[in-house]
Write a protein that binds this DNA or RNA. Structure first.
Lengths: 181, 181
DNA sequence: ATGCCGCGCGACAAAATGCCGCAGGCATTT
DNA sequence: AAATGCCTGCGGCATTTTGTCGCGCGGCAT
């Protein structure tokens, strides 16, 4: 990976956490990228239309439109854009969608700059190791909820009804989703 | 979803659990698919080469080659094959990989036949007109526990450890009725 | 403006879970 | 035969997670 040798590559960083953007943006610039920052999908779209970036890093959980629509928009603007989705609320359901919409990789926070840069270069092979431990129940539940949530267009009330669970309880489960194993 | 009306669609089911194959295979045949079963990647390849299936369900964790290479092979044989990856050891990393290699969907076990069939029809950005009652979380949990329990020879203590849950809690969960619906 | 919905959140009781500990069963080891 | 190790079922009890109710807010169509 020696992109930085030539003219610096344009990179669009979209995350609503200002501090996070600053830190990650600085790290990326040090690696030779020309970083542009946006804090929402609405803010990012015009920037991307003005000059489609070669690389993009997108957070999914943002106020306003969900990050997934931005993934789609960027990919349609320029299919060669390398898009990495980065989220603190990672789930298989959104990962699958993101990839289908054209994302290059999907990473869970926390991820450092090196991992992200490496992700841009990712090409699939069949050699990803499988986990040895069976899925944890909490995890299974989380994934299932996310899937149903997506199927209901992220409508919490509808999802709660579909799952026959209290809206309040669903809210609470969604609020605290760390728990990666 | 009225595939069954025409000639039945060919479907290749690849999983090393014979019982699982039987049950799921039967359920799929009842829905109008012509099911062929293989228990390993090595077994599945020649079958697929002989006659590329229209649909495929692939487990990731199998003796021999990992299921991901089969995903790739099937997709290269015929890009129109609808492939669903189904695994008890789900992870975001393998999900991303599977989709990039050409899988249509990625589901975590347990998943019932309806969910799988629905997955075949699922389109990336599409509308979701069919509202299927999603499986209840309790059922999901119950089936998952049963699977892991069997993998550990019905050893409650070992299962509790594998699931990272208290033995006492597992006991209590097992004590109360299955609660199917 | 007036419902109808969805959302976020506080409060409190009810239920589930985590965490002890004990006794019995059943192999394997000493 | 006794000791050891592991599993199982179960009784309490502290803690955590739920179910439930209710409030106010904001969008949206009528």
């Amino acid at each position: 990976m020696t992109i930085s040798r030539e003219e610096s590559a344009s990179l669009l960083l979209v995350d609503d956490d200002a501090t996070f953007c600053k830190v990650l943006g600085a790290a990326l610039e040090k690696r030779g990228y020309a970083v542009t920052i946006a804090h929402s999908v609405e803010q990012a779209i015009p920037l991307a239309e003005a000059s489609p970036p070669e690389f993009a890093i997108i957070d999914l959980k943002m106020g306003g439109s969900p990050g997934l629509v931005l993934v789609k928009a960027l990919h349609e603007l320029d299919p060669n854009t390398r898009i990495v989705v980065l989220t603190g609320y990672a789930s298989i359901a959104t990962a699958v969608e993101a990839i289908k919409l054209g994302a290059t990789q999907y990473l869970a926070k926390p991820a450092n700059a090196d991992e992200i840069v490496a992700a841009f270069a990712h090409v699939p092979d069949g050699n990803v190791p499988l986990k040895t431990q069976p899925t944890q129940i909490d995890n299974l539940e989380w994934e299932h909820i996310q899937r149903v949530l997506r199927e209901h267009d992220d409508n919490i009330s509808a999802t709660a009804r579909a799952l026959n669970m209290h809206r309040r309880t669903l809210q609470r489960k969604l609020a605290k989703p760390p728990l990666r194993n």
